[in-house]
């Protein structure tokens, strides 16, 4: 810096003063305040008083004074709510200097990036564990040439998982005619429509159940409210179909899932992993015909639709696990 012209140094100093709100505190060899200056108001250091321990005013320097040796820098210390400051401590004979420079802007920007990075890393970890779990259960002889490849993009989502289970009595296989499957198709369609009308994302359909996630697609109300509304709408649709000897039951559980696109043997699959998916399945299994069981979190966050026992023409009622 020796060859840097004075005008450049002056400009740099002015820039720091303008953008970093520098403030300084001088202390004696006992860490007591002997002077201060700069923009102390920016850091709400109104209680500075000569002779007071500096650590009382500024907890970030507790234990650091008196300072000897080279300069010490503590980056991005949260001083007041959402205000970040770089703390610089350096010594000169029998006194120490504490310099504060504002770091709120870059710390806030870094926080957004760090949040995203950490979430992606967490999801990646969960995917690796899910893959380990899946692969450990695979029969080696049935392995395809291409092993699952997980995308690195993923999200952690707060969802309500609904499992809607139904039974339809069908004739035994030899007597089963294609017309016999019509009610089954109608039921599946009615339930899927009820779910998608409430911004549900149908993740799997089997002969006797649908799994739906609420909170993945944009929606106006809470995932729990949409989930309860969807189940009630499905129950109403189910009732109007008047299928003989058909029953329906449902379970809803809420929580966080990791979700991401997974590439398996050339196909892209939306994979969701989380405890609430399993809990919803278990609740649906335990719910008797015409019953919805939901966990405590769903009940709490569902709002009015789950405020109490709701009956749909006496055929479907809510109860809480």
């Amino acid at each position: 810096m020796a060859d840097t012209p004075r005008i450049v140094l002056d400009y740099l100093a002015a820039l720091v003063v303008e953008t970093r709100s520098p403030a300084w505190i001088r202390t004696d060899d006992g860490g007591r305040v002997t002077g201060w200056g700069g923009d102390t108001a920016a850091y709400r250091l109104s209680s500075l008083a000569e002779g007071e321990p500096a650590g009382l005013v500024l907890p970030a320097i507790e234990g650091l004074l008196p300072h000897s040796g080279g300069p010490l820098r503590l980056p991005a210390v949260e001083l007041n709510s959402s205000q970040f400051v770089d703390v610089h401590v350096f010594g000169e004979s029998e006194q120490s200097w504490v310099l504060l420079t504002d770091a709120t802007l870059e710390t806030t920007q870094q926080a957004m990036l760090q949040q995203r990075l950490n979430e992606v890393n967490l999801v990646r970890g969960w995917h690796v564990r899910a893959a380990d779990d899946q692969i450990s259960r695979l029969d080696a002889s049935g392995l395809v040439g291409e092993l699952p490849a997980f995308s690195e993009e993923g999200e952690r989502l707060e969802v309500a998982a609904a499992q809607i289970r139904f039974t339809v009595s069908l004739p035994a296989a030899p007597e089963l005619a294609s017309d016999d499957l019509v009610p089954l198709g109608r039921i599946l369609r009615a339930i899927a429509e009820a779910a998608t009308n409430e911004s549900g994302y149908v993740t799997s359909v089997t002969q006797g159940s649908l799994s739906v996630l609420f909170g993945v697609l944009p929606a106006g109300a809470t995932p729990q409210t949409h989930a309860v509304r969807a189940v009630l709408a499905a129950a109403e649709a189910f009732r109007t179909l008047e299928c003989e000897n058909a029953t329906m039951a449902a379970g809803i559980a809420s929580g966080f899932v990791s979700a991401g696109i997974v590439q398996v043997a050339g196909s892209r699959v939306f994979l969701v992993s989380g405890d609430c998916v399993r809990v919803a399945r278990r609740l649906a299994s335990n719910a008797g015909p015409g019953r919805l069981l939901m966990d405590e979190a769903t009940r709490r966050d569902a709002g009015d639709p789950a405020a109490g026992s709701v009956s749909v023409d006496g055929a479907f009622s809510l109860s809480f696990s």
Partner: peptide, 27 residues
Amino acid sequence: SEKYLSTVGVKIDKKTVEYGGETVMLM
């Protein structure tokens, strides 16, 4: 809170406790 918010830099909280007849301010 179930919500995950990553920490950037350092946040200092204080808590005053009594231990063995001493008042201790934990930073």
